[in-house]
Amino acid sequence: AAVAALAALKDERAAEMLIQTLGYNNPGAAVAAVDGLIKLGSPVVPLLLAQLDSDNYGARAWALRALAGIGDPRGLTLLLKTATDDFALSVRRAATRGLGIIQWEALEPKAQQAAQAEVKTALLQVVRDPEWVVRYAGIVAVQGLAMAVDDHSTIAAIEDCLQERIAADEVLAVRARAQWAVQQ
């Protein structure tokens, strides 16, 4: 409850304490701290990136969730690596979701294009993850990307990948989500 109160302050001075909370191995408190950090948004990104150097896997995973929720492009490199590489499926899932809500307007147009191409490549791999929930998150994220870009070849590649999921995914929920993405 103290963590929730701290998060409700939406105060940047609270950010350091929220970040400390991520390392306490208390999932309830960590969830509240992640929510608070996401509400604080971009100003906490440098602090989060510093936290991501820590050796505490649990703390890193929570910090990554906060980073994913904020969508600040400074987290992009890390989200890309985590979405495709992390061994924990819930962390891949969260990083993938983050790749779908990047605040592209924070980048210069040229950097934007290069970064979007990287995100596209990563997401087209993530939608084939062995875990259904990561594929589901991948579909949500490619939908987000398709809505953010105006490059026709990217949009066409995303269409193809969604159609493939609709036709071939072994999990009905994933197929349905791909269908909903196409409809939107």
Partner: peptide, 29 residues
């Protein structure tokens, strides 16, 4: 089984409740 269902799956038949459930799932990722 799901494999049998796949043959009957109508991809355009997403109901309003199914879409609401997916929206909830999206919020939990």
């Amino acid at each position: 089984r799901l494999e049998d269902y796949a043959k009957r799956f109508d991809p355009l038949s997403l109901s309003a409740p199914a879409i609401e459930t997916m929206a909830l799932m999206d919020s939990l990722l």
